[in-house]
Design a protein around this nucleic acid. Structure first.
Lengths: 218, 218
DNA sequence: TTCATAAGTCACCGATTGGGGACATGCAAG
DNA sequence: CTTGCATGTCCCCAATCGGTGACTTATGAA
């Protein structure tokens, strides 16, 4: 899920590669580019084919339509979450792991416009192809985070999955709001200061949630 | 911002009211209904006029187009956040107020499909008319919450606006995710149990954020 | 070299979109 | 009663949409 290696609005001189796999890949990357640039409302056969520089008919021949193309995109997990997991000290506490994991993911998400557009899409529409895309993305993400938490467990009495979901949801929302509105709930997300306050608030909540409970201190 | 008092797909027998203000209001309410039912991707002149049961030409005559209609919707703050503020004990602590306020808002948001659609819209697209709509909504919300927090202040050392923004963002995201995907980050949001875990996690975070700091305990 | 087949292109279809011009009609002022 | 005007309706427009049939052309096997 990166902006795309090859900016491939067809060169009119080159006589088309006549290589099915290559053009199919080109269509997939074009779809990602269109999604990143113009959002899901513009993600149609016409736009994708124009971006890829070939005829839209090939979308139907090779993928059976846009739904099939999206499905193929979901299966190609290599395109998702390209960044390697962040380094972690051996015996790091659960809260520490969640904190660094969250900020690493935040940085990756901020740089991945297509992923942002996909998240917004998931919130706006329902539909079978979208569900499959989300399932693939969720699975990849789950694996990414799962491997990083292996061997450490949250403090007792804390519903860690629910708390983590809340923090992740907040991160998603504010990242999307930053791009589209630039501000949210009175905070200016466009400025580095606003962004810093947000990151600090997230870190603060992680610390309070997974640090020692108030009554634990002697 | 409620589903609409009058389900007004024109009665073919009644010969049209010939009342400019009434039809203008009807168009606004129709727009809200279309937004709630089909989402912002379907919110066009054709759909709104069909829903209102009159000709789309009137949208251009009375509002100058869809953008003007949306702007008028924003100015009509009476349609937003109809619910009255929840009751609060006199000397309630800041954390308590945030908690009850958050859950009251959550309940209202869950029941207001049009507002949900609007939030998703704001995350998906940019544009002048949308910005004005959001500004109106944000202002109304700010007043709603502002009045309820008057006279109490957060614990020192806590960036309350940022923390509240995070919690609110999480609430928004999970409410939208519940409607569209039904699940998020491994949590099943459709079941009452999942919803309860989420509410509990939010309350837990509020408590930890605004309760006594770990080192405060003797 | 021939030739079947797949890769690619082009032109077209019906439906729907966001608009606007031309016209009918009811109401209220004269 | 007549007349002016705002209200409402109808029909048309160009553009775009998703989708497909018919065609050309390159390539690899015989």
């Amino acid at each position: 899920m990166s902006p795309a290696p090859t900016p491939r609005p067809r060169d009119a001189a080159t006589p088309r590669s006549r290589d099915r796999d290559a053009t199919a890949r080109g269509l997939m990357q074009a779809a990602i580019r269109v999604l990143a640039r113009d959002g899901f409302t513009a993600l149609g056969p016409n736009a994708v084919a124009a971006e890829a520089g070939c005829d839209k008919k090939l979308i139907y021949r090779y993928f059976g339509g846009m739904d099939g193309l999206l499905e193929s995109l979901g299966e190609d997990i290599a395109l998702w979450l390209a960044g390697p997991p962040p380094e972690l000290p051996e015996g790091a506490a659960y809260g520490n792991r969640i904190g660094t994991l969250l900020s690493a993911y935040a940085e990756g998400l901020r740089g991945d416009l297509a992923l942002q557009r996909l998240l917004a899409w998931e919130l706006a529409e329902t539909g079978a192809p979208l569900r499959k895309l989300d399932a693939a993305r969720s699975a990849a993400f789950g694996q990414w985070v799962g491997g990083m938490l292996r061997g450490s467990s949250p403090p007792a009495g804390v519903d860690a999955p629910a708390v983590n979901a809340v923090l992740l949801a907040a991160l998603h929302y504010m990242t999307l709001a930053r791009r589209s509105m630039g501000r949210f709930a009175g905070l200016d997300l466009a400025t580095p200061e606003g962004q810093a306050r947000l990151d600090a608030a997230l870190a603060f909540l992680v610390d309070r949630a997974y640090g020692p409970a108030p009554e634990d201190a002697p």
